[in-house]
Structure formats: structure tokens, C-alpha cells
Design a protein around this nucleic acid. Structure first.
Lengths: 117, 117
DNA sequence: GGCTAACGTAAGCGTCAACTAACCATCCGG
DNA sequence: CCGGATGGTTAGTTGACGCTTACGTTAGCC
């Protein structure tokens, strides 16, 4: 309601994704999981922080749809969910397109609109 | 020094960029600036928060290399700096490539390595 | 059933970030 | 020079976040 943009539904997903990616540790977790599936303890073993900290990070990544959880006995294997990165890429692409369109329109307007052919 | 990764120099730039983009208000500022150049007051007039808040956001965006400042009398016109978004895109692309390479290698290894030709 | 391993969760704590209010700096017209 | 306009800066507050310690939960094994 604050702005005129329709950021009621779409903006939330993008916000969660960017928020999750803003933390360097979470990006490193994604990098570690990029090529293989690992259990929570195996992930935590690669960092200096305690295991609960990693668990909380995994929870944030899971809420953002960036990782997927698969239960295997007492283990919980985590794997990257590629679809979760699409909102971010879509935001970047949309930004680019919007900008290019505006620049092209501005160039045409400045030239008088007779340089199309 | 915390990890074995060489995130001393490159990681900092990416961190600053992601941190700047993590704030929804700053992403909206970039959207507003995507098609036109605006002064600080004109930007602030489009939001509910006070001008100092916008000024601080603009400072963060400037430090992250996402916007450019151009002085014009007492006015300060701000414009999007496209190059600032490249580290983010590079991170996403690098993540994709790394992941695809690992998956391809895993598939070849699982097949026995004789399915190359 | 008891024991251990693997994990998530809750409470508490220190730190950082976003916001507001008040202040300071710069530029321009009279 | 003076007054208003534009806008960055500082001090202080509030809320969120990441981390640790302690505890609860589930699965497998004897």
C-alpha cells in the first residue's frame, strides 16, 4: 500500500530469496552443495560455526526455496533447489529489459522518431 | 581465514552488492532509477520514509557501485550504474556453471567413463 | 528398554542496520 | 551578504539477525 507498484505477492518471494542470499555464509553453503548432496552435519563440519548455526542457515535457505531436504534415517540430506534462484535471475533480467526499453525509447524520442528505418 | 576458500578479495565485492540488494527499498530505488535519472528529493518524494533515510540508502547503493552521482547545482542526480550488477550476475552464472560441470562429471563417472564418444 | 548418533528448536546475548529528528554544508537569486 | 532550497551527516532508538549453550526429538543398534 505504500507504493503504486504491485509488490504484494511477487515482491515477497524476491525479498525472501535476496534476504537468504545476502548472508555470505549461506552463499558458501550453497556453493558447497552445488556439486553434491550433503547431510547437515557434513555441511557444518566445513565451517567454523557450531552445528545449530548451520541448521538455522539451512532453515532460512529452505524457507527461501534454495535448498531441498531429504530425510534418510537420522540424517537429513540437503540439495540445491535450482528453481529457487530463478526469482533472483528474473529480477535482474527484468531490470535489464526495463532499462533497455526505456533507453531505446528515450533515444528514439530524442532523435525525433524518424530514425527507425 | 575462516575457510579454505580464497574469498579475501572477490567475496567482498559480491558481499557488498548482495547486501545492498537485500533491502527491498533499495531495490525499489533502483527500479525507479532504471529508466530515468532523478534527484535525491525526487526519489524521496516517491517513498513514505524521510529524505535522510533515502539519502542513506543512496549512500549504500553508491558504495556498492550500483548508482552514480552527478552534481548539478544544489541538486544531486542519481543514475543506475549497470556494471554494479555484474558481480551478482557473475555469481549466479558461476554457480550455474560449477553445478553443471559437477553434474556432468558425476554422470560420466557413474556411467563408467566409456560413454564419451 | 536403554544408549548413542544426528538434528532441529528455544532462550539469551551481542551486534548491526534502518529509521527519525536535529544539525550542517553547499548553491543560487536578491 | 542574506535567505531559501536541496541534500548529506550525526546521535539515538528500535527491531532484526547470527551465534552459542542447553534441551527436545527421532532413528538405529545392542
Amino acid at each position: 500500500m505504500t507504493l503504486t507498484l504491485a509488490n504484494a505477492n511477487v515482491g515477497f518471494v524476491i525479498d525472501v530469496a535476496f534476504h537468504a542470499l545476502a548472508e555470505p555464509r549461506r552463499r558458501e553453503i550453497l556453493r558447497v552443495l552445488s556439486d553434491r548432496e550433503l547431510a547437515a552435519g557434513e555441511i557444518a563440519a566445513r565451517f567454523d560455526v557450531t552445528r545449530p548455526a548451520i541448521s538455522q542457515h539451512l532453515g532460512v535457505l529452505r524457507e527461501a526455496g534454495l535448498v531441498e531436504e531429504r530425510r534418510d534415517g537420522t540424517r537429513r540430506r540437503y540439495r540445491v533447489r535450482t528453481a529457487g534462484l530463478e526469482p533472483v535471475r528474473a529480477w535482474l533480467d527484468g531490470f535489464w529489459d526495463e532499462r533497455l526499453d526505456a533507453l531505446k525509447a528515450a533515444a528514439e524520442a530524442e532523435a525525433g522518431g524518424d530514425d527507425l528505418g
